[in-house]
Design a protein around this nucleic acid. Sequence first.
DNA 1: AACGCAATGTAGCGACCGCTACAAGAGCGA
DNA 2: TCGCTCTTGTAGCGGTCGCTACATTGCGTT
Lengths: 187, 187
Amino acid sequence: MAQPPMSKKPMSKQTLLAPLAAHVLRHGLGSASLRPLAKAAGTSDRMLIYHFGNKEALIGDLLGYITAQYAAALDGAMGGERAATRGEVLGRILARSREPAMAPFMVLWWEIVAGSARDRPGYRAAARRVMAELLAWLARQMPEDDPDPEGGARYLLTMIEGAQMLAAVGHADTAREGLLASDLSPP
Amino acid sequence: MAQPPMSKKPMSKQTLLAPLAAHVLRHGLGSASLRPLAKAAGTSDRMLIYHFGNKEALIGDLLGYITAQYAAALDGAMGGERAATRGEVLGRILARSREPAMAPFMVLWWEIVAGSARDRPGYRAAARRVMAELLAWLARQMPEDDPDPEGGARYLLTMIEGAQMLAAVGHADTAREGLLASDLSPP
DNA sequence: AACGCAATGTAGCGACCGCTACAAGAGCGA
DNA sequence: TCGCTCTTGTAGCGGTCGCTACATTGCGTT
């Protein structure tokens, strides 16, 4: 069946990034090749190269877009009054990370970490951006009477990432029980 | 120049795994395709399929071999007297992880985690094996007077993996400073 | 109307992918 | 020696990869 004319879209980098990001969040970076990506964005591999130059640049832009999305999601979750304890801050962010909407990003995140560890171009920058954003968010969330909010944020970030890694390999219970043995008494 | 006859090698799964693992540790799992792997092992893609059945099985066996190697390395590092504090245990294992000999495994590790998060066959099992081994090692290392060695091991495991993830994305200093803000006073 | 240029489709290149069909050796027991 | 099985080499299949050459469309400017 022939398509109706279907209001023409400008089809620039910016309009392409959203569907491309959606595809990568669903299927991962490892199997992100030009033709499937193009199909997901309603265009052709030819046009992806035309707009982004080459695949490496495309992935770089895509990682930037996705990490910016993640940062915005974090900022949007900033509401509510301050937590009373470090443990409460930790509980909040872990709960947020467990939300189903975050799952695709969490899965993608480990691909970004792996790329960063191997120094693949663009990955390190994307990972650092997420970490910086998370660190700032945590510092803002720390209890009002915390003696060392920056230090506490770094401590919590370490715990959070450890817990999420354990969850990624099916050891979520290990992390949960580990937190019980820390000085972070859960709420 | 023609090769001398060069004592014939039996060339079984077991003899192949060592050079294959070495290649994967150097170049990563993402770019591990049959022909380069075969070349590294002194054989042909044809023979890899012959011995392992298909690539998925090969990767599975390879992950098993590498994680077993890692476990053995951990056991070999078990010597010495017990640590006096949890912080000292943490310091020991982080120091061990920083050894240059461990670097290839550390880089590979995040690929394993990413594969596990995406549920690629074989990855979850390999990751769980490493975690279980590390957990047992930690429990054995805990201070003699620790009130809850298993809980402490889980806590330390969470911190360790968080710290290593941060190191993988170039935030090693964040993890180090974060530990100063914890109840784990460094030695 | 003529031109210029950005946007896009079509077709294909050479390289690599996992895997297989086929045949030939190598050793061994009957 | 015959045949059998295990191992190996050669060649190639159909597919995907990133990317490009070339032609065409369409729109704004002159």
